[in-house]
Structure formats: structure tokens, C-alpha cells
Amino acid sequence: MKKGTILVVGSNATLLEAKGGGTILIGQFLNETAVPIMALVEAGYDFVLATPTGEKPHMDKDSDALIYFGGDDEARQRARNFFVNDPAMNKVRTLRSVVDDGLDRYAGVFFPGGHAPVVDVMQDPSVREILRHFHAHKKPTAAICHGPVSILAELNTAPEFRAALIAEDKAKAAELAKGWQYEGYRMTVFSRSEEEYAEDNVFHAKLHFNMPDALEAAGGKIITADNFTSHVVVDRELVTGQNPMSDHELAEKFIAALDGAA
């Protein structure tokens, strides 16, 4: 007997604006998507994947790498096969249709990582409704790596808030974020130094803003650990993981929160 259904909120973004012009090729991270979802399924949960357009998320090409699976190629292949071939991963709905059909059926919500959510999910109006529902009902809400930036979509002014971050107008961003439902929550996210490593060694370009600055501007209490080590923070209904190496721990603590809520 299934324990319940989890809503997985994916992104359709494939390009991220770079500072000074140009774009960076992005997507959802393989392990940050597949590993927690596979763990949920193994724990007895079903899931529904939904995105802004209803199209399947694009896998970040750089994430299909052994480093994110502890050098275990069998684990990498298993995750890749799940991402590519699992029926529920290919039966994608629009976020709007999920909201319109009602959110009461979902036991929790999960935001996978990769840079993609920084483009669309963090300013999507349907995500605002989703976040408010899960917060009001104290249902577990999990996010990993760049996924935690998705919770900024709860702001009525999310697009303007994002624009203020790009313009480096911290005062305006803070003003736009007043009343954020997660103000004062302890949380983690891809750290400043981890982002600097990605900018210098992967993208060879700079981002307009980093994730801790974005969440702190809205009132989040950011706690980060050493670069690329597993780190998960739980505060009330919110479960956040810092980086790709947090995938298994994030899944474990999210499942514990779901089982406890049930």
C-alpha cells in the first residue's frame, strides 16, 4: 500500500543569464533529481512531476558524471535510466493543472536542483500557490542545491525581486520581500564559495547573484558547511540540502519528515 503522493516541481529552463552578457547552458542536476525521487519510491511514495510548461526538465549535461555518484558507475547508470525512462518521469503535467486539480492529495513537495529553477521556478505564480498550500498545512517541503531558491516564488513580487537581485539593488529586494512566509527559517543552499568554483571551473562566466544572497535578502537564515560535503538543514516543514553531495541525506530527512507528518 502506497504511503502517499509527492509533488515534484521541475524546471524547463535551459539557459541562465551571465553577468556581462551571454548565457550559460543549464538544466536539472541528475543526482539531485533522481536520487531523492528514487528513495521516495523505495520508501513507498508515488510522485507526480510538474513543470511550468508541462514539458520534461532538461538534464544538465555536466551532472551526468561519476563524481556525483561517489565514483559508482552502476549508481550513475541507475539514476540516468530512472531520469530518462521511468514512466512517471515522462508523464509530466503543467504546474497550473496540478494547482487547479487541487493540492490536498499531495503529502509533500520536492524541488530538485541544478541552476534551472533560478530562471523560471523562482518566479512562477503557480509555485506561489503550491508553496502557500504546503506551508499552511505544514506539509514537508524539500529542496536541494539551487532548488531552495524556488521558495522565493512565494513572494507576490517574485519577478520584481529577481530583477532587483540582477540589478544588485539589495535595498529594493529586501523591500519587495517583506512578508515572505519563510522569513526567519533556517535553511541551506549552494554556497557562495561553491558557486565561485562553478563559475571559475565549469561556466567560465559569472552569475548575476548567488543563492545565499538571494535567500538572505528575503529573510532566510542561511547555514552552509564545507564545500561539496553533505549538509542538510531542517526547520519546521522545510528540509533543504546544500549541494549535490547532500542527495542521500536530503532524501533520508525528507522521508522522515513525511513519515512523521503522516
Rank of each mutant, 00 (worst) to 15 (best):
S97H: 04
Q77D: 15
G260E: 09
S230I: 05
K253Q: 14
S126V: 07
M59K: 15
G102F: 08
A142H: 02
D60V: 09
N210E: 14
K253M: 10
W180C: 08
L250C: 07
A13K: 06
K170T: 14
M59D: 11
I151M: 08
T14S: 15
P125N: 06
G179M: 07
K172T: 09
A50M: 06
H146L: 05
M211T: 14
N243Q: 09
L152R: 02
H137I: 02
R80S: 15
G10E: 09
V109K: 08
L95T: 01
G4L: 05
E195M: 12
L103W: 01
S126T: 04
G22P: 10
P148Q: 07
W180E: 02
D86A: 14
I166R: 12
R96N: 13
F228N: 06
P112W: 08
A163E: 15
P36Q: 07
G71E: 02
M122N: 12
Q181W: 10
A217W: 12
R76M: 14
A261I: 07
P244A: 00
G219P: 12
T53N: 11
A65F: 11
E183Q: 14
E55D: 14
K138R: 13
N12R: 04
Q181D: 14
D101P: 00
T14R: 13
A50T: 08
A198H: 14
V9S: 07
K178W: 00
P52M: 02
D72A: 03
V99K: 03
T224M: 10
D86I: 04
H137P: 12
H115M: 14
R78W: 10
I151N: 07
Y185V: 03
K178E: 11
A214P: 09
H208K: 09
T240K: 03
R132Q: 11
H146V: 10
T14P: 08
W180F: 06
F47R: 01
M59R: 15
D60M: 15
L131K: 03
A225H: 11
N31I: 00
D72K: 02
N90W: 07
M211P: 07
G220R: 10
I6A: 01
V41T: 13
T157A: 12
F134T: 00
P57K: 06
V233L: 03
E168I: 03
D86K: 04
V239H: 00
R105Y: 04
L250P: 06
E154R: 07
A153N: 02
E129D: 11
T23L: 12
A163F: 09
A174E: 12
K172H: 02
V9A: 13
N210V: 14
Y185T: 03
K19W: 07
A205T: 11
I144L: 07
K138E: 13
M1C: 12
G21R: 09
A163W: 09
G179W: 00
N12A: 09
E42I: 05
T14M: 12
S97I: 03
T94D: 00
C145R: 05
A50K: 00
N243S: 06
G20F: 02
Y45M: 02
P117R: 10
D72M: 05
T224R: 07
L215Q: 05
H248I: 11
R96G: 15
G241Q: 06
V119H: 07
H115C: 11
L7V: 01
H115P: 15
V48N: 03
A163G: 11
